[in-house]
Structure formats: C-alpha cells, structure tokens
C-alpha cells in the first residue's frame, strides 16, 4: 500500500459510549512508543449522548494533519455495523475493514420510522475485498465485561500493524490498573492470535 507521504491512517468509528476514544488513545500510545510521529483526532458532537463517533489515528515519520482525507484510510475499525457505511468514502480501495457485528439502533429505527439496513455485509463486499467480521460485544460479555469490547477490537487490528507484542503489553500495563491490565491483555492476545492467521501486514 502506498501513501504519498508515507503516513498511515486508521479510522475508528462507532457510537458514543463504545470506548472508541479510549481505544484510539491506547493505539496512539502504542504507535508513539514504537517511534512514530502520531496525531489523533475525534469528530463527534456530544459523544456521551449516543451520537456517532469517529477517531482518526495517523502515524508515520512526520504527520501534519490529524484528519484523513476521504479515500486515504488504510484500516477502518468499525465498532458498529451501520456506522461502517457512513464512513465508506474514507477508505482507500485496497483498505482493510474490521467490523464488530453489534447493531445499535439509531432513534429513528427505535421509533419504527426507518429500517436498519439488513444487507450491510453484502453492500460492503461489493466494494471491498479485505473485510473481516467479529462479534466483539458478544465475546466481551462472554469474558464477563462489556467494556472489554474495545480491547477485543484492538486485538483484531493488531496483526495488521507491525508492532511488537511487548509494546502493546507495556501500554496496557501503564494505562490500566494491574488486575484490569491483566484481563485486557490476555483477551487482547487471544484475539490477536486468532486474527494473525492469513493476514498481510499493512505496515512493513
């Protein structure tokens, strides 16, 4: 994959309250620790109140803009199925899309005034080859804590970044209290291993 300035862009999207900002902070810390210049920016109105959230993380030798232009995102980490569609035009055609299968209904769907599109996977497959689904929310509930879903998403992303497992571990251990760090890192490793098979690294 190429980018004119050698800068990579990761876009995390979803709904306020899903832990996207926390996840993008962890990712940024990992990238910074690996020696990259990093910039990060969220686009949200009042995120805590159920609106859309998107977080741009950009890294490379020297990063200027914290926002990615449309068509330039290398990996999209989508925390909610429908939100994937909202940001498709940010993806480069060869980009990777990782999607959490959770569906969170917008107010108009809850009120029965608009349908929640049911063929999201089919639509995305028309335009992109490298797409992957997982149910991070279900897996997190199975692990006993809904809040761990964002760590699971990072685990699915990590095989696409050439970053040492130790660096991830360091960041988990500095960013969380000890027992929470342990749990998060072990779940992270498990998902990372699952996703490591048959994946091409995007960052050499």
């Amino acid at each position: 994959m190429s980018n004119s300035n050698g800068v990579r862009s990761i876009l995390m999207v979803g709904v306020g309250g899903q832990g996207i900002i926390r996840a993008s902070d962890i990712l940024s810390a990992v990238l910074m620790k690996s020696g990259f210049d990093v910039k990060k920016s969220e686009v949200h109105g009042m995120a805590q109140r159920g609106g859309c959230v998107s977080s741009h993380v950009r890294y490379g030798k020297k990063v200027y803009s914290p926002l990615t232009r449309k068509g330039d995102v290398d990996v999209m980490l989508s925390f909610e199925k429908l939100e994937t569609l909202r940001y498709l035009d940010y993806m480069r055609s060869s980009g990777v899309i990782i999607i959490n299968e959770e569906e969170i209904y917008p107010p108009s769907v809850n009120l029965g005034e608009a349908p929640y599109p049911h063929n999201i996977e089919e639509i995305i497959r028309k335009y992109f080859n490298d797409i992957h689904f997982l149910n991070a929310t279900k897996l997190a509930l199975k692990e006993g804590d809904r809040r761990i879903a964002n760590t699971i998403m990072l685990g699915a992303l990590s095989p696409y970044l050439d970053i040492e497992l130790d660096t991830w571990e360091d960041v988990f251990r500095t960013d969380f209290p000890p027992n929470v760090a342990e749990k998060n890192f072990s779940v992270f490793k498990m998902v990372r291993n699952q996703f490591s098979e048959n994946k091409n690294l995007i960052m050499q």
Binding site: G51, D89, I123
Partner: peptide
C-alpha cells in the same frame, strides 16, 4: 469537487445525540 469514490448505499438513518 473531491474525487472520492461513489458508492450506492441504502439510506443511512441519522444518529443524533440523545438525552441519556
């Protein structure tokens, strides 16, 4: 105008912020 790719998508319901 920006030459971003065009996609044929179904209507995407808006997700305005809401009272908690």
């Amino acid at each position: 105008s920006s030459e971003s790719r065009q996609f044929s998508l179904p209507p995407i319901p808006a997700r305005p912020p809401n009272l908690c």
